[in-house]
Design a protein around this nucleic acid. Structure first.
Lengths: 221, 221
DNA sequence: TAATGTATATGTGTATACAATCATACAAGA
DNA sequence: TCTTGTATGATTGTATACACATATACATTA
C-alpha cells in the first residue's frame, strides 16, 4: 500500500519535506516555494506540489490559494497531546491485538523484543539508532495485529509525527531498558490473551515514554 | 487553513472523489484512471493526480506505482472501529473542552443545541438534513474548544469518514431527540466545568450513536 | 500446444508551458 | 503627505507534452 511513497519521486519529496519540517530545518511560518524546493531537490514543481498538498492534509503545512504554502510545524503541546491520545489508543490497540493476533505476528513481536534485549546486552556501544528502530518495529507489528486498518493508520501517523521527539526519548539507556521490559510485559499479556492487562500496560507504557520525555527538557509543555 | 479545499480546482476534485467513494459510487477495487476522472470533471490530469495522492494519504485509495489508483473504500468494520475510537477521543475532547472552552464557544454550542431543539419542535417536517448539519456543528465546535489542534484534526477526519453513515443514523426521529438531549447534558457538564461527567457523557453519546447505527441494519458488523 | 519474444497500446511519472493571481514599486493627483 | 492607480515581477494554478513502465495481442519457435 505504501509502495508509492518509496518508489516515486513525489513520494520521496513528500517524505523529505516532512522530515525537514519535523527535524526543525523548516520552521513555523516559513514559506515553502515550489520552485525553490524543486531546485533544492533536483525535481520539477509537479512532485513538489503533490507533496505539499499531502502535507497540508497531514496538518504540517497550510496552503493559502494563489499565495503560498507555509509551515505549520508541530509544537511541544502538539507532541504532548499526541502522547495523551496515543496512550489511550495504544491501550485499545493492545486489547484488540490480544484478541486477534496471529501466530506469525506473535513470533515477529517476540523477535523484536529479543533483538532489543540482545542490542542492550551487547552493552558498551548502546546503539540508540538500532534501539529506536526496534521500538518502532514492535509498535508497528502491534498496530497491524490489532486487525483494525483504521486504528493502525492513526497510530502510525502519530508515530511518524513524534519520531523526531522519539529519537531523543530513548537516548537514556536506563529508559531503554525499562521500555524493553514493558514491551516484554505487554507481549506476555497479549500471549496470555489477557485483554485488560494488555490494555493497561500499553496505556501506561506510553505515559511512561511521555514522562521520560518531560524529564529530558520538554518540561515547558 | 482549509481555504484551499474550497477555492482551488484540485481541492474540489479531491472532495468530489472522496464524496463519490464514501457514497458508494466508486466501489472497492475500482480503478480510478486520471484521464477518465479528468474528463468526467472537466479538468486536466494535474488536479486529479493531486487529489488521488491526498486520498491515498487518507487511506481511501491505494496507489500502485506505474499501475494505477484503486479504491480502498471503507468497510462496515472500519466504521465500527471508528466509532469505538471516537467514543474514547470524544470523551477526551469533552474533558479538555471543559477546561479550555471560551465564553464565545460556549455561546456557539448553546446556539447549536437551541437550533436543534427548535428544528425538532417545529415538528411535522423533521428536516433530517438540518438536524444532521447541526449535529455536525455541535461536534465541530466541541473539537475546537478542546484547544488541541491534533485532537481536533483526528476527530474531524473521522467525522468526515462516517458522514455517509451518519446520514442514515439520525433519520430516526426518536434517536434525534435523544441525541439532542445528550448534547444538552454534555453542554451542561462543560459549562459546570465537570470534566469527569463531560468525558463520560460524550463517551456514552458516541456509543449510543453506534448502537443506533447497529439497529438500523448495520448489524453485520 | 506451450512457451517465449516482440510490437503496440494504454496509463502513469515528470517536466515544461501558459494563464491567472497576488505583491511590490512607483508615479500621478488630491 | 497621503491616497490611488498602474505597471511589473514573482508565484501559484492548470494544461499539455514527452518519457517511462506495464499489459495485451500476436507471431515465432521448440
Amino acid at each position: 500500500m505504501e509502495e508509492y511513497q518509496e518508489h516515486s519521486l513525489g513520494g520521496r519529496v513528500f517524505q523529505k519535506i516532512r522530515e525537514d519540517i519535523l527535524s526543525g530545518k523548516y520552521k513555523e511560518h516559513d514559506e515553502l516555494r515550489e520552485t525553490t524546493l524543486g531546485k533544492e531537490l533536483g525535481v520539477s514543481r509537479t512532485p513538489v506540489r503533490e507533496a505539499l498538498r499531502q502535507l497540508e492534509l497531514e496538518g504540517l503545512v497550510a496552503i493559502i490559494p494563489n499565495k503560498g504554502a507555509y509551515v505549520t510545524g508541530i509544537s511541544q503541546k502538539d507532541i504532548k497531546d499526541i502522547y495523551v491520545i496515543r496512550s489511550m489508543l495504544e491501550g485499545l490497540c493492545a486489547r484488540w491485538a490480544a484478541q486477534h493476533i496471529s501466530g506469525e505476528q506473535l513470533d515477529e513481536l517476540e523477535e523484536a523484543v529479543l533483538l532489543s534485549e540482545f542490542q542492550m546486552k551487547k552493552g558498551s556501544g548502546f546503539n540508540a539508532e538500532q534501539i529506536t528502530s526496534l521500538d518502532g518495529r514492535f509498535h508497528t507489528i502491534l498496530y497491524e495485529a490489532s486487525g483494525s486498518r483504521i486504528l493502525s493508520h492513526v497510530l502510525s501517523d502519530f508515530h511518524n509525527y513524534v519520531r523526531a521527539a522519539r529519537k531523543s526519548s530513548v537516548v537514556s539507556e536506563e529508559r531503554a531498558r525499562k521500555s524493553i521490559r514493558e514491551h516484554k510485559q505487554i507481549l506476555r499479556a497479549i500471549k496470555d490473551g489477557d485483554e485488560d492487562l494488555a490494555e493497561q500496560l500499553a496505556n501506561e507504557h506510553i505515559l511512561h515514554v511521555m514522562q521520560n520525555l518531560k524529564k529530558q527538557g520538554y518540561e515547558e509543555m
